[in-house]
Nucleic acid binder design. Sequence first.
DNA 1: CAGATATACGTTATAGTATTACATAGCACA
DNA 2: TGTGCTATGTAATACTATAACGTATATCTG
Lengths: 128, 128
Amino acid sequence: MGTALTPNETEVLALLRGANGPMTAYQLLGRMQRKGGAVAPPTVYRALKGLEEAGVVQRIETLRAWAVVTSPVPGVVAICDYCGSVRSVEAPSLFESLHQRLAAEGFAEARQTIEVHGRCGDCTGGRA
Amino acid sequence: MGTALTPNETEVLALLRGANGPMTAYQLLGRMQRKGGAVAPPTVYRALKGLEEAGVVQRIETLRAWAVVTSPVPGVVAICDYCGSVRSVEAPSLFESLHQRLAAEGFAEARQTIEVHGRCGDCTGGRA
DNA sequence: CAGATATACGTTATAGTATTACATAGCACA
DNA sequence: TGTGCTATGTAATACTATAACGTATATCTG
């Protein structure tokens, strides 16, 4: 199946798993430098590319940051602008509707990005 | 209603309208420099910010580029990776489903980004 | 009118994100 | 042994975006 991860990919993935949210490439770079000495941007970007192709991380486009994929199926990324939390919400029927809608236009999609900014339940319940 | 556009905003909007697709901020900058002499990045970014707030342009996140808003209502941005075309596809019921789905999670959305990469009808019909 | 405020813009510098290009090292295996 | 492949290192650069500060102009208002 998926080829095994390389050492660098493993390290980046571990860092992302240990974080409680997305990290930018340069945050990852900083962590790796504090551990391992001379690490340069291509090391991080190559690892991210590999992990993305393996389907285990994804770029959160609107944050220019990277996060572990938490759901087996593509989801809606819900980003709270108040507390910064990022959740992936599964919505298979939504993606199916999207597929249908695009098919009706003759468009064959290969990759969907759905990101939503707003306020999460925790931040809505409490004060502003 | 919407305040009038500033001269810089007007110029940037005209450039985007004249293009047949999204332009990056630095492409806009280059055009403005060839016309007007010394123009710096903040000039472009300020104009884009104003236009975005006015709802007449939007950033295409997955392209890191900017495009004129073509539909009165938020749409699905369909990007053909073969010919580079970018279209906004209206899908009100899709956005309504998205709203419902997020509301069920307690999430109140303020801004949605839906971008899809794939192959458009023109590129599907013909050869690879 | 003087002074206060607000908007738009100019200018310089810098921050933040990502890629290109080329070198090297190790492994697999004919 | 040598050939090719994968992963990595390394240096430089490209691309995207913002911060911080200054200036000009308009408008309001006492």
